[in-house]
Design a binder for these strands. Structure first.
Length: 454
RNA sequence: GUGGGUAUAGCUCAGCUGGUUAGAGCAUCGGAUUGUGGUUCCGAGGGUCGAGGGUUCGAAUCCCUUUACCCACCCCA
């Protein structure tokens, strides 16, 4: 029979059990962190009516949406979790309590060319707060706190949350008369590090941007220093434009509130060049970078939008939220060898029977499971050597051996796979030891200790 | 969408300007060691050389077509 090649599509992540355990742990930690801030879970369908998903799409995103037909229906796969949220809030407006705080961790799909760290199917972990009619600035600070707390809870401590306010940029470009070109100018200037000053100026000039505007923009974006220094330097722009002025005030207020949320000052940096690609953001914007891996881009991005559901509802529903690219984050951490993979196993103990009759071993397994111990029973008829080799490979911390000797002495042999030590103990004693170890490793680091520089 | 690269064992790859029986490491299985894994040693199985066509006495190797994948750009998580 001709065999079909067992391939997995490009851009789709599929993990071996060892890695999946770590991925699950990563997702669980994100979930726990979001719940710590009182966000409630939401799960929406992966497939939506094409009309719904495409309501506000256009340009680049529209090209990337997977669409399909089933009978008469035009369907599409969601490409982010924000559009489904907008639909959901509009559809369930009457049943929700505002401010509506929800988190959602799920897969999204983008039909673009796959690449290193760039997937076509990937997990996003979103948190958003949606207001009814209005939403205070305090939430923009709170979201920054959520980012800080969440990234920290993963065990990462070398990262920076970059903060900006969209009104500042919009106001500034209005002020210099380049409103229409603002997006293009920002995108080009964003490449400064990659292609250099000269190339940036050339590209902008070719587009017909006045030299004056280019210089003004570079000067403005070049405003740097500590947060308070930047805010001080911005004072001079305050009377130039109303939007700009509002933006500066908002940025100031959000930055100040961060202290109340106990976010360390050195973790959040104002960066005027942070713009975010999607231009539906209208206020604060966030991007989060790992100090040692700026090349991978932002691992958590988002911002404030003034009207989430404008395509679905007459209601004004302002919101603020961020999204963590979980799949990319996992990929990068894995590639950098930063994941503590050895520490996660699916079972707490593996029972290896050495006798034909499995009644005893099955009974013991049930008892251990009854005590909340993840117990696997190995029932293959193979040599002990092979059985232990299996235990070794699944990295189970303990093995219980049950043979003639154990049955006649009414004990079981508990073997610690790491130390290799083993001894005859009662079921009760074995359970206690396993639970003790489980408790010790419950708070294990997801991120491996930094390797010593050599 | 644009540009470049790769395709040989389950995995990572070697295979010279074409030469007869296509290799290595890892993994798997067996043995050294019949109730003791992670180390070592010995052995075994495993391939229509991505697919289709062409050149040639002869093709994994050269040419054409095609498909898939990888890398980068664009854009993004």
């Amino acid at each position: 029979m001709k065999k079909v090649s067992p391939r997995t599509l490009s851009g789709f992540m599929e993990l071996l059990p060892d890695d999946q355990l770590v991925m699950n742990e990563l997702i669980e930690r994100l979930q726990r962190s979001y719940e710590l801030f009182g966000f409630s879970p939401l799960d929406t369908p992966i497939i939506e009516a094409a009309e719904v998903l495409l309501a506000k799409a256009g340009g680049e995103t529209e090209k990337q949406i997977y669409t399909m037909q089933k009978g008469e229906s035009e369907l599409a796969l969601r490409f982010d979790l924000t559009v489904p949220l907008a639909k959901f809030v509009a559809a369930n407006y009457g049943a929700l309590s505002f401010p509506f705080r929800r988190y959602q961790i799920g897969k999204v799909y983008r039909g673009e060319r796959a690449q290193r760290g760039r997937f076509r199917e990937f997990y996003q972990a979103d948190v958003d707060i949606i207001g009814d009619g209005e939403l205070g600035l305090i939430y923009e600070a709170e979201i920054a706190a959520v980012i800080y707390k969440t990234i920290t809870s993963l065990g990462l401590d070398e990262f920076k949350i970059k903060l900006n306010n969209r009104k500042i940029l919009n106001g500034f470009f209005e002020h210099i008369g380049e409103r229409e070109n603002s997006l293009f100018i920002l995108q080009t200037i964003d490449k400064l590090d990659k292609i250099g000053l000269k190339a940036v100026i050339n590209i902008l000039s070719d587009k017909g941007i006045k030299r004056e505007s280019i210089d003004e923009t570079l000067k403005f974006l070049g405003v740097s220093g500590s947060n308070s220094e930047i805010l001080e330097k911005l004072e001079q722009y305050k009377d130039k434009n109303e939007t700009l002025s509002t933006g500066i005030e908002e940025l100031k207020e959000v930055t100040e509130s961060l202290k109340d949320f106990l976010v360390p000052e050195d973790k959040v940096l104002i960066d005027l060049s942070i713009a975010r690609g999607l231009d539906y953001y209208t206020g604060t914007v966030y991007e989060t970078f790992l100090d040692k891996h700026p090349e991978i881009g932002s691992i958590c991005s988002g911002g404030r939008y003034d009207n989430l559901a404008e395509f679905y509802s007459k209601k004004s529903l302002p919101g603020v939220g961020v999204s963590i690219g979980v799949t990319r984050l996992f990929y990068v951490l894995d590639e950098q060898g930063l994941l503590n993979k050895e520490c996660f196993s699916s079972a707490d103990v593996l029972i290896i029977p050495l006798v034909e009759d499995l009644k005893g071993p099955i009974g013991i397994a049930s008892k251990l499971r009854g005590r909340g111990i993840k117990t696997e029973l190995y029932t293959e008829k193979r040599k002990l050597k092979a059985k232990l080799s299996y235990a070794d490979k699944i990295r189970v911390p303990f093995v219980i051996l049950l043979g003639e000797d154990e049955i006649s002495s009414n004990e079981l042999t508990l073997k610690d796979m790491k130390s290799g030590e083993q001894r005859g103990v009662s079921l009760e004693e074995a359970a206690e030891q396993i639970l003790k170890r489980k408790a010790q490793t419950a708070d294990i680091r997801l991120i491996a200790e930094k390797k010593e520089e050599e």
